[in-house]
Write a protein that binds this DNA or RNA. Sequence first.
DNA 1: GCCGTTTTCGGCCCGACTGTTTTCAGTCG
Length: 573
Amino acid sequence: MDKKEIVNVLERISVLLELKGSNPFRTRAYQNAARALEASSISIGGDISAKELEKIKGIGSRIAEQIQALARDDDLDLLRELAEDIPPGVIDLLKIPTLGPKKIKYLYQTLKIENISELELACEENRLSGLPNFGPKTQENILKGIQSVKKYSGSFLYADIYKQAVEVLENIKSHKLVQKADLAGSIRRKKEIIRDIDMVAATDKPQQVMDFFLSLEQVSDVIARGASKSSIKLNTGIDVDIRAVSPLQYPYALHHFTGSKEHNTAMRSMAKKKRIKINEYGLFKNGTLIGCKDEKDFFNVFKMEYIPPELRENYGEIEAAKEGRLPKLVKKQDIKGIFHIHTDFSDGSMTMLQACSYLKGLGMQYAGITEHSKTAAYARGLKEAGIEEYFKEIEKVEKTLEDFTIFKGIESDILPEGELDYSDDILDEFDFVIIAIHSHFNMQEKKMTDRIITAIKNRHSTMLGHPTGRILLARDPYKVDIARVIDKASEYGVDLEINANPHRLDLDWRMVKYAKNKEVKIFINPDAHHLENLNDYMYGVDIARKGWLEAKDVANTMDRHKMRKYLKEKRSR
DNA sequence: GCCGTTTTCGGCCCGACTGTTTTCAGTCG
């Protein structure tokens, strides 16, 4: 089993233990271990040593052994035993809001409810109402929850809901009693998938702000209404939570509601050792508030650097902030040029001139045009005969634009055996080559990994495009040992792409950090087919930041002269 | 199950809201 699968197993054990009602701290130990393993840069092979694993904080002797067993045999007695006790459908019940492990366990034991459909039927037949601690309201809420899960997946793409979030936020800000308001939660942390929108408002009259919030025209349902905290469902299906606090409490509340839960837990635990209590209202030493005017002050109380929201995942940011070694995260302004652009030469809708003029208008210095290669017939991939015309067009457009460089590129398919689909002679003519998988997704992991590594070894390869092939909320990544791919990319001097298309955001930020540790450079590319997609590179910058990247880690922060030299050196390796 | 400036046992983050109760457990973030 590879690292990612082992992380999944540990998370699964945690969920199963929770459903069994085991010691909650044991449950959390597995969760923590999963995160710790995921965040570590350790490489997992069949011969991984327990000692090596135990060095990771959060992994003790017992779990180290279990990870060893998983890496070696793909098997674990504990998991098998737990899975025998609990049918797979029961785990799905956790997706239903208002339903947690305790209630699920009870329903499973008393009513033998094993999946969502059975639960729905039981609610409709009024079998829940009347059970101890279950009343008519609970039953109704569960039914509502099931409908919501069925109708919406319960998850949303960041790009799809960001606008709605800002719209609601602007509404809140417009209220005369609101002094300050910000987005918080996963959207502020720039997670690729968002389950709900969180915001915090500073006001001296929380009740009036709550009333205003609940009366917004986008509200389709009120989930909770409290004196300082409320939740609503928007008519687009996503929930919004808002918290109103006094202006004095605002920085603490903003930190609290930005999370993540794991970051907060670790911060509180750390604070507690210094006899400081953290809650959403403040930092308290012996019951006395430690004043902070903003989040920067907040971290400063613990002699920590300010931790940007993107990094607050308890992936090592707390230790790094204490030691003053947080990265200076890459910014949108650092990006000097854009690669991975499809024009109407293959399956794009814009002309080359439109794309490049637009980028120049954004202040960019260069573009790397990449049409699909010939195997991608569905996308009108370039046949050998069309390449000369393609180059001529590039040269023509380049001449019309002053101080702007266009690099001649191709997105070359990686064929099933790992070969590229043009001859060496032809590949030699391009300034750069993005290698990528577009077919034969269903391969065994080893075969897929070897296929990609074979392509990485090709001296023409500049970078690996959308490295795992995932489509968020739609298609799983193909089976690939991405850590091994990154190791080989590092060895052979091939870069990796963060595909910034909001449906992809591939490479995943967790692995971006891994790539950084392996000194693999990253290109942030929009994979644009339409003019408006060219701006998507900004989502890629968010992901790069979330993966701890600095400007020097991102290839397309180079100016156009350095980039030309860089690409040339890559070709001659 | 993990961990240690309260160290090898005894803790393990903190609070709001809901729905069920009649003082609180469960869920959520």
